[in-house]
Design a protein around this nucleic acid. Sequence first.
DNA 1: AGTCGAACTGACTGATGAATCAGTTAGTTT
DNA 2: AAACTAACTGATTCATCAGTCAGTTCGACT
Lengths: 197, 197
Amino acid sequence: MSRKKEILKTATLLFATNGFKETSMAEVAKASNVASATIFYHFNTKDDLFLSVLSNVKDSILEEFSHYFGEKKFASGLEMLDASVSFYLYLAGSKTEWFLLLHRYYPYKLAEENEICRRYLEDIYNCFVDIFEKALSEGQSDGSVRELSPRKTALVILSTVDGIVRFKNCNLYDAGALYNELIACIRQMAANQNQKQ
Amino acid sequence: MSRKKEILKTATLLFATNGFKETSMAEVAKASNVASATIFYHFNTKDDLFLSVLSNVKDSILEEFSHYFGEKKFASGLEMLDASVSFYLYLAGSKTEWFLLLHRYYPYKLAEENEICRRYLEDIYNCFVDIFEKALSEGQSDGSVRELSPRKTALVILSTVDGIVRFKNCNLYDAGALYNELIACIRQMAANQNQKQ
DNA sequence: AGTCGAACTGACTGATGAATCAGTTAGTTT
DNA sequence: AAACTAACTGATTCATCAGTCAGTTCGACT
């Protein structure tokens, strides 16, 4: 792996687990087996490094989603919704750093003044919402999903799933034990009761 | 107001809006019209100040909840659930600092090594979950709520409501516009369909 | 062999920030 | 008025950290 990618990878991990302000460039350098000045050769400033990290995370997430949903077919919109939620939970479990980073406040604070940062975050969250919305819309067409506003409900579902993941990462509750309950609740929330099997 | 309380109040606001590491003791001092050294007279260390802030927020939240739910009576468990969610949203809107603070990562990071901090956070979140759980349990008794695990479902509901509030505070979506949708979704999630009016 | 440039580094700098300390002030007690 | 004390402060200390700079290394091209 090139030095630059190595730096990006360790920075992602450190920013995610310890925070942006809490991580010094010297730490990143040491963990990457590189001199501090090397980081400044590849990235102009610390904020610059952070934006590269976020951009990288964004690309990876978008790729994971398009890879998973690009081919797959579902029996119904409701089935697709189930699968989307499960996939989100699977990703959150296997790429913990990404979600830890997204559950920090720094990116959103930076987004207030930095258009590029804002764009990255919007891309990521729109990717999530779009999938849920698509599932709900298709579900309404095939009759598996009840009458509701697909976009708004998709946002409510995202906040539920994202909330559970956040709780899990915060180690407050054993939120991992809630996955089955979560899927059931979301199904209940969206399902068309009249044609339930 | 005593100097100590003044410091506590401005520190709450600054830690919540700018973060713990991002806020210097000098800033807190200036915003409180006090010399830096005065803060160290009242609070031994910066972490100490943070714990006092959190303790204060915890007490306030617990008091708000016991005040609101101490007297009130509800027509059914489902009605109580509605009211609980609405009250949570109302609080999040009027005491933004509290929720901004709780949506930062620092408290949870500190809780990993500091038993007292952990206890404060647990007290706060248990207060939330307990109310939702009580509403669900009572709803099952009076038949307004479907068959489900009250505790687990309460946690799912908390993650939904908390997730929405977090989105709102992060300025990503106009999550405020989702409140009606949110209440409807949660009702749909919990309601007993057989006896719906 | 000699030149060039990209990648990299050790040593440094200036700024900032938590914490300390030797006091001063003002209110209360004796 | 003298003694005591809680509240408060200006000046200072020491560590850390983002960023700079004057170089070195090394492979590619001429």
